[in-house]
């Protein structure tokens, strides 16, 4: 167990290991997406209240979940890198940011498009949408801070502190936004409540969630590999890998 952990912390080992793993992950992601889309678009029944717009939720809910999930991964790996000074943890943390921002953005867009037929307007200051807007800003801040430093090590550590501060704040922000929302809009809008879930709808949602999860792992791996190449350029194995000789 521990040797495995140490190996994972070595960029070289991770790069070689992920070279073997990556094709599998790509295939699994693709197949899960195909299955999920088939279930969600073709086979699942619809909610009698929401009609076919409920099909948007199959891509919206997993995106929202993964947006949060990626932030948690980013903050925890950032904290691990900060405390134990593990290079790999920082690389993963930094690579999470843009994938997570993408998920959050997709959750916002699909939420807004879903809102048009449901609420009659694209944007509503609904608690969940507002929280996700703020989450998106947190991602932007993280990426901007990391880009602002010339030295990658300083950037990693500073961004990790920000990610942890953000992680502590997310529940508080979420709570305050919920509270603010109930104060101002009361019970007039309660349409985001879960539609009555049939088994086939739940199946479609879970498959899509798995697909997003694997997409996250695949995209993260690709980014981490690219990051490793740049950061380890002065170590022999990268040079050997890139130029194909051992000069």
């Amino acid at each position: 167990m521990w040797t495995w952990f140490y190996q994972l912390a070595s960029p070289k080992w991770f790069y070689q290991f992920s070279t073997r793993l990556l094709p599998w992950f790509r295939w699994i992601t693709g197949l899960l997406f195909l299955l999920g889309l088939a279930l969600g678009l073709l086979f699942s029944q619809v909610d009698y209240q929401q009609g076919n717009t409920v099909r948007i939720l199959y891509i919206h809910v997993p995106a929202a979940f993964m947006g949060m999930f990626a932030y948690v991964v980013m903050a925890i790996t950032g904290a691990i890198g900060f405390v134990w000074r593990i290079k790999m943890a920082h690389i993963v943390s930094v690579s999470c940011a843009s994938v997570g921002a993408l998920f959050t953005l997709l959750a916002l867009i699909t939420g807004a498009v879903w809102g048009k037929p449901t609420w009659g307007t694209y944007w509503i200051w609904d608690a969940r949408l507002t929280s996700f807007l703020i989450l998106f800003f947190l991602y932007l801040g993280f990426m901007a801070l990391h880009n602002a430093f010339d030295d990658k090590k300083t950037a990693d550590r500073a961004a990790a502190v920000l990610a942890i501060v953000g992680l502590v704040n997310i529940p508080i922000i979420h709570f305050s936004v919920e509270w603010w929302n109930t104060l101002h809009q009361g019970a007039t809008i309660s349409k985001f409540e879960k539609p009555s879930m049939d088994a086939d709808m739940l199946a479609a949602l879970l498959v899509m969630l798995a697909a997003y999860q694997f997409y996250f792992l695949t995209a993260l791996m690709q980014r981490v590999r690219a990051e490793i190449l740049v950061r380890e350029k002065l170590s022999g194995w990268v040079q050997k890998l890139v130029t194909g000789n051992n000069s």
Binding site: F137, G141, A144, L162, V165, G166, N169, I173, F175, V177
Partner: peptide, 10 residues
């Protein structure tokens, strides 16, 4: 501004 404003929201 970008870093701090979201944290000010509560």
């Amino acid at each position: 501004t970008l870093l701090v404003l979201p944290l000010f929201i509560p």
